[in-house]
Amino acid sequence: MIPSAAAPARAPRATGVANGFAIDARDLTRRFGSFVAVDHITFDVGTGEVFGFLGANGAGKTTAIKMLVGLLAPSEGVAHVAGFDIATQRDQIRRNIGYMSQRFSLYADLTVRENIRLYGGIYGLTPGQIVERTTTMLDTLGLSSNADDLVGKLPLGWKQKLAFSVALLHNPKIVFLDEPTSGVDPMTRRQFWELIYAAAARGTTVFVTTHYMDEAEYCDRISIMVDGKIAALGTPTELKEKFGAESVDDVFVRLARGATKGETA
């Protein structure tokens, strides 16, 4: 499927996500000097969808995510996240999204409980809400007996599950996860994906990057970025059929091997 052809006809855009898209991007582009990190990408993500945003190191994924979450201005093109314009409505976007970055995003020298309280405060939750959500979260994660442990002392897999739950603390419409499972053991990776599915079942849109191709298969749809462009977009089944490939891994390797810019990023 060609990305630009993937966009179905839609009613004129209203505010919010009434059009059914949590994210829509049209010709989104970012240049650094003469280097085009993100080159006219066009795609939609439906509400409640688990969307896998794949690409080799240096393909432009992180730059694209930074634009979508309002950390970087686009050079060209438009995009809406949760119905808000990424160029002009960054504050509204930040209130409506959760973001878990590649590097662990909690404070290592605060306890589990203190981290939750800190982020609850940042997200503008009331003290009552913070207490209530802390209890629920610790129960769900099985971390109740570790509430007063320093986050830095937790195994990586636990930190990542906690960071994900904290990114959802304010019930965002969309959560962006940048390589959330890198280096995590196979069982914890699966537990992490069950948390993702549970969030999606509650209506949260999940935008996730990963280098584990088995995880790409868990997504409703995936896009594969090569040299700043979206080289493929569709459901894992559609892409495997289109490329006559056994697995998403094969599709990925075939597309990414043709990359020319990746190693100069």
Partner: peptide, 13 residues
């Protein structure tokens, strides 16, 4: 020691 953590599927191969 974990030379390929965080590295993409092509580079890993």
């Amino acid at each position: 020691d974990e030379p390929t953590t965080g590295v993409d599927a092509v580079s890993r191969r």
